[in-house]
Amino acid sequence: MSSRAMILERLNSATWTKPSSSREVISTPASIVSGDVEMFVSKATAAGAQVEEVGSLDEVQNRLVQIVQEEQLQKIVITDEENLKEIDWEQLSQQTKSQVQSIAQLPGENYRSYVVEAGLGVTGCKYALAETGTVVLEHSHSNERLVSHAPDHYVCIVKRDQILKDRYVLASLFDSGLSSTAWTLVTGVSRTADVALQVVLGMHGPRKVTIFVVG
């Protein structure tokens, strides 16, 4: 008998009576789906992210220029997502004398060696959660996983209407089907308290996270 068969056989032959499954699902009323922007900002800030509310992607571009100049960043990696395309990356690159590469332009090997050297990674997101100040990333060839994880500084661009109320809304979206290979819920900055309980930011992920809430 295979281990699989043996395990399932034992589970199925348990002598206690299993009650017919009655399920109490913690549900959120469908009417409350969108989340409060102020709450998102305050929760994300509390988790260690720097959050800025801006009117347009033009403003994001201006702020990115400042960030790149202030931090003297050489290499920037960006995802191939729709809402990033409205930013004039070429102009930003010229203004800051930095190299900006979209993952769309980088074939496999080159992408991996570039992303680990980049000082700044910029992505959009699929959703955000007001409850916890979380950004929800849907990974694919247009949003590779390490763009938001390898660089020291990670910038996420969130549109106001992407903010959901909480994880339960996200759960119902996930439960109605998810096709991408991976999702990541990012809340604030990578951290550890393993050294004598001292909270240190920037363990294995970005040391700094900036979120622009647009619109």
């Binding site: 990974h139 290979t181 990541t184 809340t187 951290r191 992920g205």
Partner: peptide, 16 residues
């Protein structure tokens, strides 16, 4: 800080 939801290996056009 992170919650990963993983649904399978990378697809042909993906790198990570």
């Amino acid at each position: 800080s992170y919650v990963s939801v993983l649904n399978g290996p990378r697809r042909a056009e993906e790198v990570d």
